[in-house]
Design a protein around this nucleic acid. Structure first.
Lengths: 149, 149
DNA sequence: CTTGACTCTGGAGTATGCTCAAGGGTTTAT
DNA sequence: ATAAACCCTTGAGCATACTCCAGAGTCAAG
């Protein structure tokens, strides 16, 4: 049972969407979007219809944005949030998903690196052909002939 | 003026869309899509409405697909096609665009590599924490606290 | 002649992650 | 009281690159 000194008594303050959005670093529209996508719960409303959020939703939205930074899509994040919410989550489920994402990212890096290599080669050829009197373009040629693959 | 032996006289054969698509390695729908996007010209039609393509459109579509493999979007490729079509194209315009694409790709690789590093670190921590009696999940923690950025 | 394969069109759908629009009500500070 | 800032809704738009749909006409081979 946690003990508080008088100055530390938590106040159950409710927040409007603008404040939530600002503190979480997203737009108001994004907050509503996340609610529509059920990434966050719909909060209770005032008689006016204004949403009244518990402050902990800020942490949840920050979780979402952090996960996005690691390459997880919102679809992925739905599942991560389920794990976060489950009472007996251990690390192995999160580990599985992190490892899977790591593999995806490595594959993307590999694909991009292939493109890079090929472009570098073409750029090189192009620079060399400009130095000679050759008026043909190796980049055009490579794309015509499929040699770029 | 190019000279042909009798067996080499080119025949001005027109092709239907199915044959073009098959030879270019794309779908019929994709050919029509490229026409709609003006990446290829609308060809003359038969009385039936069937498209009658000159064989050189196959090369043009192959050019498009090769450029896509190098990371160029169809928007990018519109411009590449203009360069390809221009009578006095030299290599420097193609070179500019190849270099610009190279920079984009390098930036994407850098971003992905950051993600990778962070995920690897989290995966490492997670594995180590499973070996101890610690029941907390460093991945969850990192996403909650923003330490993953 | 018949039938299966091919052709045609315009528009909507797919997936992703927001963002905008239109029109109106509510709150807050002066 | 007033006005600006805030809130609300639903649905469409944005960008990308196709792909599918529905319904009908045409071609080519048997």
């Amino acid at each position: 049972m946690k003990q508080f000194r008088a100055a530390e008594i938590p106040i159950m303050k409710r927040l409007q969407i603008g404040e939530v959005a600002q503190k979480a670093g997203v737009s108001v529209d994004t907050v509503r979007y996340y609610e529509r996508r059920q990434l966050i719960d719909e909060p209770p409303r005032r008689a006016s219809g204004y949403r009244q959020y518990a402050p902990r939703v800020i942490g949840r939205i920050r979780f979402i944005k952090q996960a996005q930074k690691l390459g997880f899509t919102l679809g992925d994040i739905e599942e991560l949030l389920r794990l976060r919410d489950a009472p007996n989550t251990d690390c192995s489920d999160m580990l599985d998903r992190a490892e899977a994402k790591l593999v995806e990212i490595e594959e993307k890096i590999a694909a991009l690196s292939d493109m890079k290599s090929t472009l570098e080669e073409l750029v090189d050829q192009c620079r060399r052909s400009q130095q000679g009197s050759d008026s043909e373009c190796p980049i055009l040629d490579a794309m015509e002939k499929g040699d770029a693959s």
